[in-house]
Simulated assay, not measured.
Amino acid sequence: MEIFKDEPTKNSLGKLCDYFLEHHHKIAVAESVTSGLVQLMLSTCPNAGLFFSGGITAYSCMQKLKQFGISYEKCTASCGVSQKISENMAIQICNKFSCDAGLSITGFASPIPEKGIKELYAFASFCFNGKIIFTERLIPKGENQLDIQLDYASSVICLSANAILQL
C-alpha cells in the first residue's frame, strides 16, 4: 500500500527528515483526527529513529486531559477541536518527549450529526523550541473518512516542511 500518493507530500517529508537529521533535532507528534498517520509518515523516513521520538494519538477529551493537560470542560465545549487545543498539544508533546519540535493535529474527518458537527475541518500546529511556529485551519479534500485523514496528514507534513525551512 502506498501511503504517499503525491509528490509534494513525498518531497516535504524528505525535507523534514533531512532537516532533522542534519540539525540533530528531535520531533514528536500529537494526533487526534489522523489516528497515527503523521507518525506513520515520519517513521518511514530513512534513519527515522535518529530524529523521530514518537507520538500520542488521543481521540477523547479525557485522554487530551490526561496526556496534554487540556481542560476537560474546554475540550468538551469544542468537541475536542480548536486552535488552542492544537497549540497545547504541540507544546505538550515536546515536553513529554523532550523534543525540539512538536506537530499536532485535531479535527473532524466525518460529520457528527448528534453534536451538530456538519463542517469538516482540523487545526494543525507546529512548535519549535517552545514556540508555536504556525497553527493552520485545514479544510479537507476527499470523499471519505480515510481520504480526508490522509489529506490532513499530508497537509501537516507539507506545512511543517515549509515552516522548518524558514527557521
Rank of each mutant, 00 (worst) to 15 (best):
E7I: 15
P8T: 09
T9W: 08
S12W: 02
S12L: 04
G14F: 13
L16S: 08
L16W: 09
C17L: 05
D18S: 15
D18M: 07
D18W: 13
Y19G: 12
L21D: 06
E22P: 04
H24L: 01
H24Y: 04
H24V: 04
K26S: 14
V29I: 14
A30W: 12
A30S: 15
E31H: 14
S32A: 14
V33D: 07
T34R: 03
G36H: 12
Q39V: 10
L40G: 00
L40A: 02
L42E: 11
S43C: 06
T44C: 05
N47Q: 15
A48K: 11
A48C: 14
G49E: 11
F51T: 00
F51D: 02
F51Y: 07
F52S: 01
S53R: 13
S53V: 04
G54Y: 09
G54T: 11
I56P: 04
I56M: 05
A58T: 11
S60Q: 05
C61M: 12
C61T: 05
M62T: 13
Q63P: 00
Q63K: 07
K64D: 07
K66S: 12
Q67D: 09
F68M: 03
F68L: 06
G69M: 09
G69C: 07
S71C: 12
S71I: 03
Y72S: 07
Y72V: 02
T76Y: 02
T76K: 11
A77L: 11
S78V: 11
C79F: 06
K84S: 11
I85S: 00
S86R: 03
E87H: 10
E87R: 12
E87V: 15
E87Y: 02
N88D: 13
M89K: 00
M89Q: 02
I91L: 14
Q92D: 03
Q92F: 00
I93F: 01
N95A: 09
K96F: 04
K96M: 03
F97N: 05
S98W: 10
G102E: 12
G102I: 13
L103H: 05
S104P: 07
S104R: 02
I105F: 10
T106Q: 04
G107M: 09
G107R: 11
F108L: 04
A109C: 13
S110C: 14
S110R: 15
P111W: 00
P111T: 15
P111Q: 14
E114D: 13
E114G: 08
E114Q: 15
K115V: 10
K115D: 10
K115M: 14
I117T: 15
E119S: 08
Y121R: 06
Y121W: 05
Y121A: 04
A122C: 08
F123H: 09
A124V: 08
S125H: 04
S125F: 01
F126E: 00
C127D: 07
N129R: 13
N129M: 09
G130M: 06
K131V: 03
F134S: 05
F134E: 09
R137G: 10
L138Y: 00
L138R: 00
P140H: 03
P140Q: 05
P140D: 03
P140K: 02
K141Y: 10
G142F: 02
G142Q: 01
N144F: 04
N144Y: 05
Q145V: 14
Q145C: 13
I148M: 01
I148D: 02
Q149P: 08
Y152K: 01
Y152T: 02
